[in-house]
Amino acid sequence: MITIKDLHASVEGNQILNGLTLEVKPGEVHAIMGPNGSGKSTLANVLAGREDYEIDGGEVTFNGQDLLEMGPEDRAREGLFLAFQYPVEIPGVSNVNFLKTAVNEIREYRGEEKMDAMEFLAYIREKMKLVEMDEKFLSRSVNEGFSGGEKKRNEIFQMAVLEPKLAVMDETDSGLDIDALKIVANGVNKMRGQDRSFIVITHYQRLLNYIVPDVVHVLVDGKIVESGDKDLALRLEAQGYDWVKGEQAAATV
């Protein structure tokens, strides 16, 4: 699905990613954990194509294509989705208009027929059930006046509507209470399948009780320093990040 090789990236002259390497195969769920400032969100933003980030080296291949050469819209059309850590409020643009435009742009790119208003409404209603979204929400402006939890739910709803091949979730669990967390996790689990992969970025192990990962990676100083199965997340939770940092320090001596 996606292969990241020796990726180096910086923002405003500060090197954040220092040779990150990662491969995610179709159908796999990878969790990336790490302390604050380790480069988790930078990875998410670099994958989505945010322009403030400078790529200093390495390569990213997404379904056989050079991801870093593509603009953000083309990455989305090729099937990449970023669930934002801080979803943006867009006053004046309704959710329904926003999603219909997005869906039809993607369909057009893939050579599929555009959906008309009726088809789209039927389609979107189905997806709303997935994250227990209220219909009233469709006519509201994108994220405007939404609570933190509603915004995150909206991200998962968009994910469900756009049906990506690879979803990158950037701290989707932050700011969610336990009920919202369950709804979000449930939505993600229903979308899991052998053709769809997930990169779940999180600071805490809690989310991984509900979205059980195939692989857990630990990101420290812009590099993956440890990979393992889901038990690695539990160990991190119990022992903290100092444990991996210490091990890394020992290894470099």
Partner: peptide
């Protein structure tokens, strides 16, 4: 709002259309 434009683009909407949507909004 550049953040909003990036958000729209990250959903598959081309830059030019994203700008028009923002202006319209």
């Amino acid at each position: 709002d550049e953040e909003a434009i990036f958000y729209l683009r990250s959903r598959g909407i081309p830059k030019e259309k994203a700008q028009s949507m923002m202006q319209y909004a």
